[in-house]
Write a protein that binds this DNA or RNA. Structure first.
Lengths: 173, 173
DNA sequence: GTTTTAAGTTGCAACTAGAAACTTAAATAG
DNA sequence: CTATTTAAGTTTCTAGTTGCAACTTAAAAC
């Protein structure tokens, strides 16, 4: 059931405005100190408690707690091995797998601004074996958008536009 | 000089393998509890201490500490206003601006898996005013790659391939 | 020149992280 | 079939972190 010492599972203050933004809820699941490192190990094929322990150099109780939280959040699933009933496998769920862009974006930022060199191992396109390019922001039609060609709009405004366009379909396109 | 009560600025254990991966170094800068929320507020135009305070509902001392850390990390810059010498403006640097893909990827994950609805405000393409699409992983040639068509390779292998292709330029594509 | 505002600091109390030793249950060795 | 090892946790205890509330400092407004 996870780590219960001290009183770690207390209510925790929501990160404010949990209502209308996806960021606080994502951070609720992934915002803790080791969560992304555990995820990275999982993406690299690490599945067992002792292997995470060794790969990360994290304390046992913290790993236990983090794994439980990630399982609760539906990011990992916990399964007993059939061949060895002691062993438990932690595997990424679809939800967990879908965190890859976020993890890569962070990692690429770190490479670019802090390390100056590409990380090892390198994530590659399975088709041609070449390293992937940068994580990008795409427009609705698939164009890559530059970071500076962006603007915030309220949902109300966006929805109003969409309604206008539905009425006059040939307006922008 | 920031928050010093209790003894908060102690040495902190590096997140393991800081050497060859950009993720731990990115987390060193952005891995703390409020960092991404502060960044989000900054992207939304919040610039002053008291405004962050109100927007986030964070404690004053924690905000002070987080802002100092983000400034140290080069993600925000601290500037005195000219018209009112009391006021200090915290503004995103290029480095900070470049965290947008990571923040959006997290936010989109939260929207997709936890909220089920798009956040408000919505980030839009400045050219056509339409909401941006999902953050994507791109191949070296710009194709969007599906999460399952990826594979990890060592830098050594990738570099060896690159050398081979340099020798026989017409080999793959 | 007193009050207000902006941006912090300081002093606690409550919480969280981490190292190391302990537990439990399943596998393997003798 | 008992004794040992291995896998995955718990517990204990210390040290470090978070957060509230009250205090400080310096510049602006009244």
């Amino acid at each position: 059931m996870g780590y219960t010492s001290g009183s770690m599972d207390k209510l925790r203050e929501p990160l404010a405005m949990t209502s209308q933004c996806g960021l606080p809820v994502a951070l609720e699941a992934m915002g803790e100190r080791w969560s992304f490192m555990i995820l990275r190990a999982a993406f690299n094929g690490v599945r067992h408690f002792e292997d995470f322990l060794e790969a990360l150099g994290i304390a046992r109780n913290i790993l236990s707690n983090r794994l439980s939280r990630l399982v609760e959040a539906g990011i990992l699933k916990r399964e007993h091995c059939e061949d060895d009933r002691r062993r438990i496998e932690y595997r990424l769920t679809e939800r967990g797998y879908d965190l890859l862009p976020a993890m890569l974006a962070l990692r690429q930022w770190g490479e670019k601004w802090e390390l100056g060199v590409p990380s090892d191992p390198v994530l590659c396109d399975a088709h041609d074996g070449k390293p992937i390019g940068p994580i990008a922001i795409l427009a609705h039609d698939g164009r890559v958008i530059d970071c500076h060609d962006l603007t915030w709009r309220t949902r109300a405004d966006v929805d109003a536009d969409a309604a206008r366009q539905a009425a006059r379909p040939s307006a922008v396109a």
